[in-house]
Design a protein around this nucleic acid. Structure first.
Lengths: 289, 289
DNA sequence: AGCTCTTATGAATCATTGA
DNA sequence: GTCAATGATTCATAAGAGC
């Protein structure tokens, strides 16, 4: 299987090629497909009522090529129409389960730069779904790789408590700290939770982020998600040398994250312009390293 | 219609009483029903596969008694079972739409206080859904009541500008400050977004929150949500003197929030113990006021 | 390098208008 | 009727220029 390549072309047709994509060969899929009725210029747009039917053939191939212990992260958010949230995303969850996927978790990506606007019936949309699907109940997950400094949340949670107060509280309530309260207190890092709140937690070297951000602000080439998003899932669900696939590669954010983290990538993308942009980014990364 | 009362008893049977609950009489419903298979001791538990059928008769009554321009906020989160997120919540969304409700929005409540825990396949669950249903596309929404302080960026941005400078800049460049340019210079508050992140925003007097929170944590009574949660929706969707209903009242968080905000409340609760607790809190509030 | 200030724009949504 | 295009609205961040 060729690695560290971007294939140009239609997503389903490429995935159907079994020599390019053998069964059980991919460790992680991270992708953000075009949302319903968005990205019309580059992808033609998908009608909400056709969305599930459009996506299922793709997801069937993804199921075939994903390793049994691999993960599939689907970043998506339904838009509002005629005053209501569309239902195609939750319909898709149900449909994917019927096709054999396990809906393991829904991570919440707490975006900080939502689009401005004011409407009589809603506020700005500041979060997106990161749906986690797997093929099996047991799968690869390297939780230690995404631990965060304890300060961030514990300070807030127990802001006003002294250490003795804290221990007393813990032993009085039947909390899950268990007996190792002291151990827990001296720990410097803890496991994160399922809300992705990247502002405070700098997972990637800031200089790298800035370099990338600079590059990707070129006109007409928008990155649907920031580098931290695929980076977080790549660290969580893969080890060095594993293969990460993004079937809707765009300007290559997933590939860049994989490269920075010493994983291999495979991308599929329809737009020649986006591919060119992605390759340029990756070349620059290689030069820096 | 009697107001500021808590009715003891079964939710559906109480709601079916048309003299207690006339048609189109409630301004806002805020509730957190027992989640599937949780709170077995107080509610007996509801099987995941029966959850939708269990809830629909309740929601039909809620539809009947809610005013046409009223709102229904459903705080809920599916639990995980056998490695997967359950689907009863998203099934419920689809079912409620079929019964006539409009699924207007899904607010994300970003909880900050979940206790540590570790599982091989997931992290701690730090967010819950607050589903917003309405009967009509146009409904009561008092957005100004929940404005939040503008970000720090604005101070730097506008610090050195006179109004004329600013207007000149705006008309020269393409910046999207809209038509009423001068507003930006004096703006101190902006509209929030759809992620409820209460840490930064102290909507309720801190002392009140602390008193209530302390009361809750000292006993074994579960407060399904903090005071800020119903308070935010009450301010957003009602005015003073309006009526707020919580058909699963618990220890009375919604009633307390309504009382503090000078709204009337109606509660329904099965557990005599919870009702006693709720009434005690409300009495204390009255004394304080 | 590090800071300030300027400029640009991002998976948006709704009401209105015209076909 | 439905559907598509247009205008109006709005917050936060990052790149780029200048010192």
């Amino acid at each position: 299987m060729r690695r560290n390549v971007i294939f140009k072309g239609n997503c389903v047709r490429r995935l159907a090629n079994e020599s390019l994509f053998p069964n059980n060969s991919i460790d992680l899929i991270v992708t953000s497909p075009p949302y319903s009725d968005r990205r019309k210029s580059s992808y033609g747009g998908v009608r909400p009522d056709k969305y599930v039917d459009w996506f299922l053939p793709i997801s069937d191939h993804l199921y075939r090529i994903l390793k049994p212990k691999g993960s599939f992260i689907l970043n998506i958010k339904e838009n509002a129409h005629k005053g209501e949230r569309q239902t195609y995303v939750i319909q898709l969850i149900l449909a994917l389960k019927e096709r054999g996927w396990l809906w393991t978790e829904e991570y919440c990506w707490y975006k900080k730069n939502s689009y401005p606007g004011k409407w009589p019936n809603r506020f700005r949309d500041n979060w997106e779904r990161c749906l986690h699907f797997t093929k099996q109940r047991s799968f690869q997950m390297y939780q230690d790789a995404v631990k965060v400094p304890i300060g961030e949340w514990s300070k807030k949670r127990f802001r006003s408590m002294t250490e003795k107060d804290f221990i007393r509280t813990v032993s009085r309530t039947n909390s899950r700290f268990g007996r190792n309260v002291a151990n827990w207190l001296t720990k410097t890092k803890v496991y994160p939770h399922n809300v992705l709140d990247f502002e405070k937690e700098h997972y990637i070297e800031p200089t790298t982020v800035i370099n990338f951000a600079t590059e990707c602000s070129n006109r007409n080439h928008s990155a649907p998600f920031p580098l931290e998003l695929p980076s977080w899932f790549i660290k969580l669900f893969t080890r060095q040398g594993n293969v990460v696939l993004d079937p809707f590669m765009g300007i290559g954010t997933t590939a860049i994250a994989a490269t920075l983290l010493a994983r291999d990538y495979i991308g599929i993308e329809l737009s020649a312009e986006y591919i060119q942009e992605a390759r340029k980014h990756i070349r620059q990364l290689r030069r820096v390293r």
